[in-house]
Design a protein around this nucleic acid. Structure first.
Length: 906
RNA sequence: GGGCGGAUAGCUCAGCGGGUAGAGCGCUGCCCUUACAAGGCAGAGGCCACAGGUUCGAGCCCUGUUCCGCCUACCA
């Protein structure tokens, strides 16, 4: 443990102390979150004359708890928002949650079940009250987890899809769409979940391949002779068959149409019909028609006016129409029907058959297609403008490749089933008349039928949760009122989300936004990847491979997690999260922490940051780091403009660690010791580090704020300190400084390499003589002073025609520079010869392709001149190295041939 | 059945307006040098999936092929 120096400033408020050699996020994070909230720094104050930047959060389910997908999603949004906020824009990040109809109802029903209750026993009103109660006590967990991540949301504007304002928006939209004829009620084939007891939209059905069977069954003709063999994967539905269809041009079944078949088991007579929709290639070319239980058959039945026999009920059990099989669960019934068919000799064959089966997205139960009276949105008129908005570039989707998926879905979009047989959600504002049977749809709850004045009853169904989510970008801003928020922040700037809800949510928001606001809901959609585990598997509770972000934050800190996710967020690529990677960025936090310790330990008690003087007079180290910083800031700006979080993160990592810490801090140690330049160095060190903290802040808000608060500074929070933009106020690109330090680094690195190869301990200081070209010799005075500390070199001479001291190793560098390191007594001729031979080999390896290239006439004439020039330059440099290597070897040879005994120093 | 994405160092991934392959982690060697051993210094390690083509020149562009993912779809 290092004893604190008297000069170390430890502000009284600090919980984290500089003497701590390791950064401990637990001591830091909670405090800053509450400070930021107290300061209301996340609040977007209106009116504002500054540019605005707004994002609505993809509202997480109130039943949810934070997973890695949220963590990634929130991190990326927060980076954008903190960045823009620091740039002085009026930034709104609107947070909220989603009432998640089915999921929430399931949770509360499970609770009731544990108490021996059902929602039916409780009654609708009491049940809904109970869900609200649950929401108030348990529905906010995920919000606290978002805060833990550092999400800089405007918490004062928190919304909920079922709150009063949003409910009003939902009702307004429903009524207007109904009046415009875009919402209708009708009897259609829909997807029904027998467990959730509700209709589902097409999107809420997940298709999974399952190993099923293909049963072929013989249906005899009414007279008992011959007949038709059909194939099915669902034999239990035969009880509801009302026809068998064949293709009209199928020679095998010529003349069959119009005849009657006797349906086995049920012993009903059903007709053979001809329909062109039948695929002659599949199975036997004849298909049983079950209009009540298959979407395809439903359509055939409509064309041929076939009756519907519903044999499977909403509970997934067979109905009375199934005769002796009534009341059996549908899969039990399948088994029994097959047995019965077999016993009676109607079962022809059973084959293995893989096919996709629809499952409920929420409870994974196999979905049952049922004919049902439901509410639908007529979608084509809404889809058209939404397609155009993207085609015309009013909305940009990033990465662009997702546009194709978007278009594909939008072109083939089908009407949206929006009614759900649930109690938790927005109740459909439609009333059915008991007298005339007509419907009243109204903004205000009607007392009687609008058509005949008769008694009415409200439709029992609620709306699909996604219906309210589709309004999110404007309903949350106060629509249908014309609020200042709506005026200032709609359209929102960017939507950040995962591709899994592109159809569910993004497309629908675009359609609704255009319909009701007449403007796109967001200008850019940034689509990020899915977070998978280290093996590339989708994380799921059932697989047990979930990495819990909260645990990661506990263990490694929020900043490490955020930085990991940002660094791995390359566009169009899933993230395979690994602990090693998180640990690496935890180490990065520690590096930053220790850099801060170095800076603060060196600041005098009363240090006040002052504007930097004219950099023309600066030390080469100062010029260099400011130049590098400038470039870093420039790239970050470009990366963030292009949503390249990964590139920005890598850039910051590289600059911080490998330029600032590895080289600048090391040079600064020397500069600080030399009195005349102490002031300058302190200023540059401070300025660079402080700027770096600003650059890092959107990625790592906690550690940067913690450190920044301990620096001598102006302003109350780093959150509102400006973001560095180029050109920076001080410092600029300095090609000369970069060249000179680049040369220094080459010399130091090569000599360290020599030391390492020759196993010379770092403690041994080596002499060096440098035979340098004019450029190197002329500028060396700027960095010679660093040689002792950074390379443990004692440079005796640097000169254009310095002689090689006897018994030296030679470092052969670019620009025809050579470094001689006398090693008398330390190294023998043999190993030095080997070392040079190895280098020669490497140079030759690189030389060959270059020579081949330059000797090609085509290359000379067809390649662009700058490429030719560059290549020639490279070749020249390599050639001079090559020559130098050969000279060294010859020289070595001469020594050995003058009969120096083996092992003698060269 | 359609569509999209991927295949680059042991692992995870960058690099894709073509110009002698990069990072992090891991690995090897040497170092407890007063910011940091969660560290420093140095190093090893790649026919850029395969086969053709375009080009002076191809991870990068084109055409196939083979494996992986994912999305989408009413073949009973």
């Amino acid at each position: 443990m290092i004893p604190p120096r008297p000069s170390v400033r430890i502000p009284p408020h600090s919980a984290m102390e500089l003497v701590d050699k390791n950064y401990d996020p637990r001591k830091v994070e909670a405090r800053w979150n509450s400070r930021w909230e107290e300061g209301r720094y996340f609040h977007a104050a209106l009116p504002s004359s500054r540019p605005t930047f707004s994002i609505v959060i993809p509202p997480p389910n109130i039943t949810g708890s934070l997973h890695m997908g949220h963590a990634l999603n929130v991190t990326l949004q927060d980076i954008l928002l903190r960045w823009r906020r620091m740039r002085g824009e009026t930034v709104l990040w609107l947070p909220g949650t989603d009432h998640a109809g089915i999921a929430t109802q399931n949770v509360v029903e499970r609770q009731l079940a544990a108490e021996g209750l059902t929602r039916q026993a409780l009654g609708r009103q009491a049940f809904v009250e109970r869900v609200w109660q649950w929401k108030e006590t348990s529905g906010g967990m995920i919000l606290n987890q978002l805060k833990r991540l550092g999400a800089s949301c405007d918490w004062a504007r928190l919304r909920f899809t079922l709150d009063e304002g949003l409910s009003r928006a939902v009702r307004e939209v429903f009524v207007r769409l109904y009046e415009d004829g875009l919402i209708y009620r009708g009897e259609r084939m829909i997807n029904w979940c027998p467990r959730c007891r509700t209709a589902l939209s097409d999107l809420e059905v997940e298709h999974h391949e399952v190993a099923g069977k293909l049963y072929t069954i013989h249906y005899p003709l009414a007279d008992g002779k011959q007949g038709i063999t059909v194939a099915t994967t669902r034999p239990e539905t035969m009880l509801g068959d009302t026809a068998v269809a064949v293709h009209p041009e199928d020679a095998r079944y010529a003349g069959m149409a119009g005849k009657r078949l006797r349906l086995p088991i049920a012993a009903r007579l059903i007709p053979v019909i001809a329909d062109a929709a039948v695929d002659r290639e599949f199975g036997t070319g004849a298909v049983k028609v079950t209009p009540a239980h298959d979407p395809h058959d439903f359509e055939i039945a409509q064309r041929h006016a076939l009756p519907r026999v519903q044999v499977i009920g909403e509970d997934g059990r067979m109905t009375a129409a199934a005769g002796s099989h009534a009341d059996k669960e549908r899969h039990v019934c399948r088994h029994d029907v097959v047995k019965e068919l077999e016993a009676q000799g109607f079962l022809v064959s059973v084959q293995d058959h893989r096919h996709a089966v629809g499952h409920c997205y929420r409870c994974k139960t196999i979905v049952e297609p049922l004919v049902s009276l439901q509410w639908f949105v007529r979608i084509a008129p809404l889809a058209d403008p939404a397609i155009r908005a993207v085609q015309e570039g009013r909305i940009t989707i990033i990465p662009k490749s997702w546009e194709a998926t978007y278009f594909d879905w939008m072109y083939n979009i089908r009407d949206w089933c929006i009614s759900r047989q649930l109690w938790w959600g927005h109740r459909i504002p439609a009333w059915h008349c008991r007298a005339c049977g007509k419907m009243t749809v109204a903004m205000k709850d009607p007392a009687s039928c609008a058509h005949c004045g008769g008694g009415i009853e409200q439709d029992p169904d609620v709306l699909d949760t996604w219906f309210s989510s589709a309004l999110w970008p404007f309903s949350t801003l106060g629509w249908p009122d014309e609020t200042p928020e709506l005026k200032a922040f709609y359209p929102t700037t960017v939507l950040v989300t995962g591709f899994d809800i592109l159809f569910f949510w993004v497309a629908r928001m675009i359609m609704m936004g255009l319909r009701f606001m007449d403007k796109v809901p967001f200008k850019t959609v940034y689509i990020h990847a899915l977070v998978r585990d280290a093996e590339g598997q989708k994380m799921s509770k059932s697989k047990g491979n979930v990495i819990d972000p909260v645990e990661i934050m506990d263990q490694y800190g929020t900043d490490a997690l955020r930085f990991t996710l940002a660094a791995m967020a390359s566009p169009g690529r899933d993230i395979k999260l690994s602990m090693e990677r998180i640990e690496g960025y935890r180490n990065f936090c520690n590096k930053i922490w220790n850099a801060a310790r170095f800076v603060l330990m060196n600041l005098p008690e009363n240090f006040r940051p002052a504007p930097l003087p004219d950099p023309a007079e600066f030390l080469i180290s100062s010029k260099w780091i400011l130049s590098r910083l400038h470039e870093c800031a420039e790239f970050i700006q470009r990366d963030l403009d292009e949503y390249r979080f990964d590139q920005a993160a890598h850039r910051l990592y590289g600059f911080t660690w490998h330029e600032f810490c590895d080289w600048y801090v090391e040079m600064a140690k020397n500069d600080l010791a030399a009195e005349p330049r102490r002031e300058e160095t302190l200023s540059v060190l401070m300025t660079t580090f402080e700027t770096l903290l600003r650059l890092l802040h959107p990625f790592m808000p906690f550690i940067t704020e913690e450190i920044w608060q301990q620096l001598p500074r102006e302003g109350e929070t780093l959150l509102l300190a400006g973001y560095p933009t180029v050109p920076l106020k001080w410092g600029k690109k300095d090609q000369t400084a970069e060249w000179v330090i680049g040369k220094m680094i080459e010399i130091f690195t090569n000599s360290r390499n020599l030391r390492s190869e020759l196993r010379l301990p770092p403690s041994v200081e080596l002499d060096a003589v440098i035979a340098a070209g004019p450029m190197t010799a002329g500028t060396s005075k700027h960095w010679l002073k660093y040689a002792k500390k950074l390379a443990r070199l004692n440079i005796l001479e640097i000169n254009e025609d310095a002689d090689k001291p006897r018994g030296s190793a030679t470092l052969i560098l670019s620009d025809n520079d050579k470094v001689y390191i006398p090693l008398a007594g330390l190294i023998d001729v043999h190993s030095e010869t080997q070392r040079i031979a190895k280098l020669l080999e490497k140079v030759e390896r690189n030389l060959k392709p270059l020579e081949a290239k330059l000797s090609s006439a085509d290359f000379q004439s067809k390649a662009p001149p700058d490429v030719v020039a560059k290549t020639r330059q490279q070749l020249e440099d390599l050639r001079s190295k090559h020559l130098q290597c050969r000279k060294e070897l010859e020289w070595m040879n001469e020594i050995t041939s003058t009969n120096l005994p083996e092992g003698t120093s060269a």
